[in-house]
Design a protein around this nucleic acid. Structure first.
Lengths: 213, 213
DNA sequence: TATTGTGAAGACTTTCACAGCT
DNA sequence: AGCTGTGAAAGTCTTCACAATA
């Protein structure tokens, strides 16, 4: 398939074709009127814009089940991420290979970051260890952190943090499930909240900004 | 702290206080003018609205590193989720306890779903197994699926699927990282894309709807 | 003819700002 | 005096609809 139309791409992605064309237009005019988009060229342009053509060394700190799952995750390599090191505080883990990469002790953290020019760190430690690990990563030069620990991290200005809370997605499902189950109950207690329209079901749609911890 | 003002809550959540008050107003009038919101009452009302006061039995299918990490994840229980069963296709896993719960063989899948009245399933299998597992879950009565496998699942109408792609969050970080690194390069090739304002940095902000796989 | 690229319209969200209560 | 609840304004995002053009 050498070319693709905005209509086809939009159907595949589940979005409106005009939105897709408008989004693409912000990157440049990469289509051909009457024909569509050259697939290879488009993939290259979008990849470049998103930074997928670069090689991003990352470190994963905290090699429990989740850290191991991340180390083994195939999706990273194909998107330009290279696991530069696995780091754990447990001396018993040191030297043990996980996903073919030997785990290093956290004493080495600063040296690893500097030697590899790492700017992105992944924290998969228990909650209590997350902030100290974060501080050390930042001090060593990391400027983007992906946090899987159930803690809110504080970082200086200029450092990006994204938090992944594995239970939030479940909570969103449960929220919709509750709706499915009791339309009468919903009418009784919360008639104001509309049922979500398809267009609103974004990755994070329909969920209030604030919820109890 | 018996009461809290919208201003305080908004500061803690990093949102505008008017937005927070407006959001709350869709649930009802749970505040007191001149005083604020009664914390306990507010937590209860929001919890109820989000379905946190219910007990949601879930099954996790695919007990590799990720499945084990999910089974061990503390955040579930506190939000009303109960891991009703762990299911794996490997007969060698059967009976082995993970997070204190014995793994069951996938032959039992349908029976487990029915016996426990499970409506939410978590798929943490390899990509190839995800769609068949999904089909069996749906046939057995599951109507919400959280998918960690790198596959797009097809499901009948009325079934909700949410996909968690562990590499997307990293990609978002890399995208911003790229911006930080080369402001001149960005100006040269994509002046149209603005730097994100703080208010735009939502959980999924700043990322085009479509990207190459 | 088929499809892009995009102004303009429409829909939705966020914020302002203040009347209304406690 | 202090803070909520909310109309109205401002801002942002999405979709329409069509001129431009390969």
């Amino acid at each position: 398939m050498p070319t693709v139309s905005s209509e086809e791409l939009a159907a595949a992605a589940g979005v409106n074709s005009a939105k897709l064309r408008k989004d693409f237009s912000y990157l440049g005019s990469y289509g051909t009127r009457g024909v569509g988009y050259d697939v290879e060229y488009l993939v290259y342009q979008i990849s470049r814009e998103l930074g997928l053509t670069q090689d991003w060394p990352v470190v994963i700190v905290g090699i429990g089940n989740l850290g191991a799952a991340l180390a083994n995750y195939g999706g990273f390599a194909s998107r330009g991420f290279r696991v530069a090191a696995l780091i754990d505080a447990d001396p018993a883990m040191a030297g043990k290979p996980v996903a073919g990469i030997p785990v290093q002790h956290s004493d080495e953290l600063e040296k690893i970051i500097e030697d590899n020019g790492v700017s992105i760190g992944v924290i998969a430690t228990p909650a209590g260890a997350a902030q100290p690990v974060c501080d050390r990563l930042v001090a060593a030069g990391v400027t983007s952190i992906l946090n899987f620990a159930p803690t809110v991290l504080s970082v200086p200005d200029g450092v990006d943090v994204r938090k992944v809370d594995l239970s939030i997605e479940l909570q969103i499902l449960a929220f919709h499930e509750q709706r499915k189950a009791g339309e009468e109950a919903a009418a009784e207690s919360a008639a104001v909240l509309r049922a979500p329209k398809e267009s609103e079901k974004g990755p994070d749609g329909d969920v209030p900004a604030v919820m109890p911890a």
